[in-house]
């Protein structure tokens, strides 16, 4: 992606998150029951939704990777999942803070959404050791895609089963007694949500650009090496892993 578009993305993200936080702290009223600490909701919930959406997006890229054999889809799947795992850490930390404030404990087991999220997080955390354990780049991509598809299907199943198993005590901010979030809270939430979504997208674009650039660099380096050593044999050929594998 060209640097101007990246910069535009970053500026929009910063503006949205800044605006969202400003709204939440200075304009949206405190929630009646929980008071100020409930404001972590505007960070925790968007992060969780975006992280889960990112996992599913990774699964969709993985399907496209297996269908086309084009490694760029594998790279997209990797970057989506990677960014979502980082968001996942933030979700668990903000969730723990919220739990401490609401129930006086850092972790509560009878909170199905948070427990489900932990399980999903634990599964996706194994994506890295899986990739590292397969040296061949092409095979690594294929296996990682199989994993991403299975894990993508796992996400909704897991939420369903864990929810079935537990009583509902999550602060149902969306479903209060008088029928949902008040209007000003919705505005704050949506702006924050848009900001976090843009943050995810910006990080993904940055990492994709970084990966492409370094792949290009090593391709050029290899080309130089190739011409120097083998007298121009395969120098110009595409590097493995980043190559467009004929299919």
């Amino acid at each position: 992606m060209n640097p101007n578009r990246l910069r535009t993305l970053a500026i929009i993200t910063a503006a949205l998150i800044g605006a969202g936080f400003a709204l939440v702290f200075f304009w949206v009223p405190n929630e009646a029951d929980q008071g100020f600490i409930q404001k972590i909701f505007y960070l925790h919930v968007p992060l969780a939704i975006i992280a889960l959406a990112g996992f599913v997006i990774g699964g969709i890229h993985a399907i496209r990777h297996l269908r086309t054999g084009d490694p760029v889809h594998d790279m997209r799947a990797y970057v989506s999942i990677h960014t979502s795992v980082i968001f996942g850490v933030a979700v668990l930390i903000t969730g723990a803070i919220w739990a401490k404030a609401s129930w006086g404990r850092w972790w509560v087991w009878d909170e199905p959404t948070l427990v489900s999220f932990l399980i999903v997080f634990l599964l996706y955390a194994t994506y890295y050791p899986l990739r590292y354990a397969i040296p061949d780049r092409e095979r690594q991509g294929r296996y990682a895609s199989v994993f991403a598809i299975a894990a993508g299907a796992f996400v909704p199943l897991n939420f369903m089963v864990v929810r079935m198993a537990q009583s509902l005590v999550h602060p149902r901010t969306f479903a209060t007694a008088d029928g949902g979030l008040p209007g000003d809270m919705w505005v704050g939430f949506l702006v924050c949500f848009a900001g976090i979504a843009m943050l995810w997208l910006t990080l993904v674009c940055f990492e994709m650009t970084a990966k492409r650039t370094s792949a290009q660099l090593s391709r050029l380096r290899r080309a130089l090496d190739g011409t120097a050593r083998a007298g121009g044999g395969v120098g110009a050929r595409i590097a493995p892993g980043t190559a467009n594998v004929p299919s």
Binding site: I119, L122, L123, T126, P129, L130, A133, F147, A150, A151, F154, L157, N158, M160, V161, V162, M164, A165
Partner: peptide
């Protein structure tokens, strides 16, 4: 390492049920 590492979280939902 890889087998149990992936399988254990993947098997949480059926174990829960």
């Amino acid at each position: 390492l890889i087998g149990p590492l992936i399988l254990l979280p993947l098997l949480v939902p059926p174990m829960v049920a």
